[in-house]
Amino acid sequence: MSLEGKNLSFAYRRQGRVLEKLSLTLEPGERVGLTGASGRGKTTLCRLLAGYERPDRGEVLLDGRPLGRWRGLCPVQMIWQHPETAVDPLLRLRDTLSEAGGVEAGLLEALHIQPGWLDRYPAELSGGELQRFCIARALTPGVRYLLCDEMTAMLDPITQAQIWKLLLEQAEGRRLGLLIVSHDSSLLQRLCTRVQTL
């Protein structure tokens, strides 16, 4: 059962049309790369597919049902470029994780999250360390699609390779569908089953 964006059109009020009749389908276990110049609407497409925005025209379907009709946890989750803006700066990471419903046993070890990090605040962790928490949070049972928007663009190559290795292991075990947004064509080539250009 797939995640489908059908004929999506979207405009921000001041900027004019960003997306025009765009369609994209994501199947479980698939890793689709999304690339294109700045301002082409890559992030906007992610926001539509994850339900943060509603399309002006067209629809987002999950298993053939409009995404907006799913109740409870949204099975489509985003992982953002700047993890420090995606977590509550006033919560210790332990509380951030429990707010998201807690994590499965073993997942923290699998993502190489050290127990000591749980008692820290976001400002006390590096971007790579924080991004692991965002991944752990997004891997709650019930999530089936992950939209990774320039998830490792701010990280050094070693941390980038570490994080992708960990996420791909998890994604394969759970048969998650991944949408991977990046400017880096060699990264997309490395990760994706197919690549779409906006």
Partner: peptide, 21 residues
């Protein structure tokens, strides 16, 4: 060398651990 090997266009091979703060 590890940085170079970790680039997606090269080996995409990570080493373990994190940089000390």
């Amino acid at each position: 060398q590890a940085l170079w090997n970790a680039l997606p266009g090269n080996g995409f091979t990570p080493i373990s651990g994190t940089q000390p703060g």
